[in-house]
Simulated assay, not measured.
Amino acid sequence: MDTPELITTNGSSIAGIALHDKRAQELIRRGGIPEKIAVIFHSCPRDDPCCDRDPKLFIRYRDILFAFTVDEQAGEVRGGGAEVPNSPDRNKPYPTYCKIRDNANRTDSVYLGNDLMMKYDDTSFLFFNESFERVP
């Protein structure tokens, strides 16, 4: 746990809430590994009720880190999304990752170069690149 002083319950409670999400379960089934629980800081105006101060459970799936935002008080997942590497890994050949948001359909797509790796919405995965899963 990266920021225990900012969490009001405990890591087990946060993980338990996040792991009830269908997307989290799908990532685990496909080999994803829970990596950490943390509160990620953003610049927020003082007393802004819309500022995201909720803890997140991070599940690593290959090079993609998927964050599930947990509302500890309500006991539910408020959202989640993929965080892809911003720059190419020098130890791996190109191509690089890219995430594209379709606001009209409320979906996110993650690409590796031109290849679609995953597509998801607020509640479930709509697509996983099966050949990507077989890459060591």
Results as ranks from 00 to 15, higher is better:
A74V: 09
R78G: 13
P85L: 12
K99L: 11
N91P: 06
D108T: 07
A74E: 15
D115A: 10
Y111C: 05
C98T: 11
N103E: 15
G80I: 03
E76A: 11
P88Y: 06
N91D: 14
V110I: 13
G80Y: 04
D102L: 04
E72T: 12
E76P: 01
P85T: 12
Y111W: 04
D102Q: 14
A82R: 01
P93W: 04
T107I: 08
D108E: 04
G75D: 08
R101L: 03
V77F: 07
V84W: 09
G80D: 01
N86A: 14
D71F: 01
R106T: 04
G75H: 05
D71S: 03
K92G: 00
E76C: 09
D108R: 09
D115N: 13
S124I: 14
M118P: 02
N91F: 12
F128N: 02
A82D: 08
K119Q: 12
E83R: 06
V110F: 09
G81C: 12
Y120A: 00
V110K: 02
D102F: 01
D121Y: 05
T96F: 15
K92M: 04
L112W: 03
R90K: 14
P93G: 08
R101F: 06
Y111G: 09
F128V: 03
Q73W: 13
Y97S: 05
D122Y: 13
K99E: 14
N129A: 01
N129W: 00
E72C: 05
T107F: 02
Y120S: 05
E76Y: 11
Y94D: 14
L126N: 14
P95D: 02
E76T: 12
E72V: 13
D122L: 09
